[in-house]
Amino acid sequence: MTTSTLRRRSAPAAAVLTLALALSACGGSDDDGGGGGGGDALSGEVLVDGSSTVQPLTAAAGEYFAEEEPGVNVSVGTSGTGGGFEVFCQGETDISNASRPIKDEEIALCEENGIEFTELQVATDALTVVVSADNDFVDCLTTEELATLWGPAAEGTVTTWDQVNPEFPAEEIELYGPGTDSGTFDYFTDEINGEEGVSRTDYNASEDDNVIVQGVSGSANAIGYFGYTYYEENSDALKAVEIDSGEGCVAPSAETAQDGTYTPLSRPLFIYVSDTAASEKPEVKAFVDFYATNDDRIAEAAQYIPLNDEQRSALESAAESIG
């Protein structure tokens, strides 16, 4: 064993090291991040985390905002509504996306850390109950029928369609729904079953709504629920079920969700803005103002239902009062 063979053997180590350095140099060369621009152009970072349902909205807002303020980086994470509030109330993020209002214990955490915040409703989502386009017997369900179908008492007992409504055929029901971690699940169970998180558990649960789309569209006897966008994108394979909450059947649509007739399954989507961040960082304030004044096209780009006139003016005045 001579020294020359030993040297040769350490070549791969050197190769790996060189590669590592080359890669880091690659990343480093993009250092400037486009911070240039005119005299009063803003720069900096707006940190957003929270609900994955609201993420497309804030992402679209960030993208439009970048056209006006290219120096500001808006970045969005998806830790979930609860996970988002946890970091928001520790002052780690500037804005938190939420698919439900903030809870009391989360408010307490924010207060503990001296974080004051403002709640802004930025869009509306219509939770949509869907069946396959091949289903010819379900057009409308009452909220009672939905509760019969999805309530905890249904577990193992309600298995055929005629048990939900005697007019339906005695076919086996196939149930698809979001998993228990989802805000959609929380909202649906709260409105339909009367208590958040309470549901029958013998259904095909998936955190990926596209899986529910495939499951329901594959069988004439299947039923499932998710956000309106997933129905809109797949409306050729799916049929949206009209919901009767006592005042007749109402189909989910932008109009019915906006005017409030699609109840109880239309839900508000929020962002929570840290007042501290908005007053200390002008880019946060500018982003929120931009979000509020461009909310219509932001909602359209993210394929959510825009606010009605009343909600819009509430959003704009609330955004103005921040900071």
Binding site: G27, D31, T58, G62, S75, V76, T78, G83
Partner: peptide, 15 residues
Amino acid sequence: LLLGGLVFIRYDPNG
């Protein structure tokens, strides 16, 4: 994801 890795950024991570 649990650590808050972002899903939407429009700049190059640079450090």
